[in-house]
């Protein structure tokens, strides 16, 4: 699988993502700086990592969403390349309008850093096929702005289209409908607040996150 991790100033899970992908799938991602204006058309997967891009200035993800590399990410996403935004990456995808909604301050106002149990709502996506038969998964959240918001009509649409992939078993942050992760209309862009990149080996408390990367790698193999 050919993959790339986009690195913004203030990203801090870029290396975690690279190690997670390599250990989960055996292939090592390229690290791509945010000023890059040409991404490899042969990519199978692009990861927007967690962190605090641009210091969370203005709004979390707002600056990164408008950086040079994002027009390339958008172009490849339109061609069907898989894109995963994790935590700050999810915020960036919403700010870039590649996913609907926005991430608000957590309802309890606190930065939350803890393992959470997720209900696997849809294991038919290219990001979750390896979860088939699994009702739940455990991954870690680490954020202050993880409270998913979308207007009522958008919520109805994404729910109706089966685009919710993960839901918090116990809602930690006020997210509407307990949404922890969802996909775009085309099914090739996933945003999620919990970190699969912090849960890819049993030593980390859970290996469930590896299934996300393995799902994408499996889909990439089929295409190839």
């Amino acid at each position: 699988m050919k993959s790339a991790v986009i690195v913004f100033p203030g990203s801090n899970c870029d290396r975690d993502c690279a190690v997670a992908v390599q250990r989960s799938t055996g292939s090592k991602p390229a690290m791509v700086w945010h000023t890059e204006t040409a991404l490899d058309d042969g990519l199978d997967l692009i990861i927007l990592p967690g962190g605090f891009s641009y210091g969370d200035y203005l709004r979390s993800g707002a600056m990164a969403a408008r950086s040079a590399v994002m027009s390339e990410v958008r172009r490849l996403a339109q061609k069907g390349v898989a894109v995963i935004g994790i935590c700050n990456g999810f915020q960036i995808l919403c700010e870039a309008e590649m996913l609907p909604g926005a991430l608000l301050r957590n309802s309890g106002l606190k930065y939350l850093c803890k393992p959470v149990t997720l209900d696997v709502v849809n294991s038919q996506t290219r990001f979750t096929r390896a979860f088939a038969g699994r009702a739940q998964a455990v991954m870690t959240v680490g954020n202050a702005d993880g409270n998913y918001f979308a207007d009522a009509e958008t919520l109805r649409r994404v729910e109706g289209e089966g685009r919710i992939v993960f839901r918090y078993h116990e809602n930690p942050n006020g997210s509407q409908n307990g949404i922890a992760g969802l996909i775009n209309e085309g099914g090739n862009v996933l945003g999620m607040m919990p970190h699969p990149d912090r849960a890819f080996e049993a030593d980390l408390g859970s290996a469930d996150g590896a299934l996300v990367f393995q799902s994408v790698a499996g889909a990439a193999l089929e295409v190839a």
């Binding site: 709004r59 707002a62 408008r66 608000l104």
Partner: peptide, 9 residues
């Protein structure tokens, strides 16, 4: 519209 506000919220 382009940056300073997020029309979703």
């Amino acid at each position: 519209d382009k940056l300073l506000a997020n029309a979703v919220i």
